[in-house]
């Protein structure tokens, strides 16, 4: 892997720019942890604060939801997740099967995600700020 960073200083300042932003860290068992980024080290162990755990519904739940909810109508391909605000569960819409599914969530607080289990890291940005920076 060719590193996008020329020197260490650049890498550190990039990581520092992420501090206190909300990260979404997906682990090997396909859970997603969303929390404020507090700390990392050389092995990419990540400390998140105020973390919620989101879990994809199990096949059984998926089936139930599928039968009760029916097909979705408004799908937006650029944004793979939509939300449902009335309950504590959050709805996602899988792009593959085109149905709405509830992600079950749980509050965990302060967590460490060991680097070896991380498969995906996303940073949450305000769309308005991205637009302001001309990135969108």
């Amino acid at each position: 892997m060719t590193s996008p960073f020329q020197d260490k200083q650049e890498a550190v300042s990039y990581l520092e720019s992420l501090l206190n932003k909300n990260l979404r860290v997906t682990t090997t068992d396909s859970r997603i942890f969303v929390g404020a980024f507090k700390c990392t080290d050389a092995e990419s162990n990540i400390v998140l604060q105020y973390t919620y755990e989101y879990r994809h519904p199990t096949p059984q739940q998926a089936q139930q939801q599928n039968t009760t909810q029916g097909d979705p109508t408004n799908s937006n391909p650029t944004n793979p997740t939509t939300t449902e605000t009335t309950t504590t569960t959050t709805t996602t819409e899988t792009t593959t099967s085109k149905i709405k599914l509830d992600l079950t969530s749980r509050y965990l607080g302060l967590v460490v995600v060991p680097g070896q289990y991380i498969v995906k890291i996303e940073v949450e940005e305000f769309a308005s700020q991205l637009r302001g920076r001309g990135l969108l």
Partner: peptide, 10 residues
């Protein structure tokens, strides 16, 4: 990738 490679520099 960006994050992991940055962390690897530490």
């Amino acid at each position: 990738d960006k994050f992991l490679s940055a962390a690897a520099k530490l």
